[in-house]
């Protein structure tokens, strides 16, 4: 299989690699860049565990090839934590509301929530449920995830740094 040289940034760091065209973006993130915070649940675009943002838009890392991300800026859960180790208000709200159990869906959930709050600082419960409806969580029944996103939205509106 012909391999392609690609370059993309993940959380601001430039990664260059030569990859098969069939390599998915999530496999690139996990296996080539070594960032294992992004998870894989189905590899067919339903569960949302692999959600990352590409140039600011939430995408499913299993439905995009790494070669398609050439030149683009990818963000993963590891990019949510500040360089000094401080958690973002969204991460902190997820802890405060205990918006997880096993933590497997959590990275994808955080990135979908972040995209929502970037577009809509004061979402209704229905809008929150809509925004995370593409992320399956088998543990929580979503109640505390909705609470966490409401809490993060309120704190961000009060001026917590994004």
């Amino acid at each position: 299989m012909t391999e392609h040289a690609i370059a993309l940034t993940i959380n601001g760091t430039l990664y260059r690699a030569t990859v098969e065209p069939r390599l998915s973006l999530v496999d690139f993130i996990r296996d080539v860049a070594g960032l294992t915070g992004t998870h894989v649940g189905c590899e067919h675009g339903v569960c949302g565990a692999c959600t990352v943002t590409v140039d600011g838009a939430a995408v499913r890392g299993c439905l995009m090839f790494a070669v398609q991300a050439e030149g683009l800026a990818v963000e993963t859960v590891e990019g949510l934590t500040e360089a000094n180790g401080a958690l973002s208000p969204l991460q902190d709200a997820f802890i405060e509301a205990h918006a997880m159990q096993c933590g497997y869906c959590t990275p994808g959930m955080l990135l979908s929530a972040r995209e929502l709050l970037a577009d809509n600082p004061d979402p209704t419960e229905a809008e929150i449920r809509d925004a995370i409806a593409g992320n399956l969580c088998r543990c929580t029944g979503y109640g505390q995830i909705v609470e966490a996103i409401q809490l993060a939205a309120a704190r961000l509106r009060q001026g917590a740094p994004a």
């Binding site: 996990r30 960032l35 294992t36 915070g37 992004t38 998870h39 894989v40 993963t76 859960v77 590891e78 949510l80 934590t81 958690l87 991460q91 902190d92 997820f94 802890i95 405060e96 205990h98 997880m100 933590g103 497997y104 959590t106 990275p107 955080l110």
Partner: peptide
């Protein structure tokens, strides 16, 4: 009280078998 386990998961620092 905050749940002890949650911090590593929101940081993407869980250690699952595939990791």
């Amino acid at each position: 009280r905050r749940v002890k386990e949650d911090r590593r998961f929101v940081m993407g620092k869980g250690r699952f078998v595939a990791d």
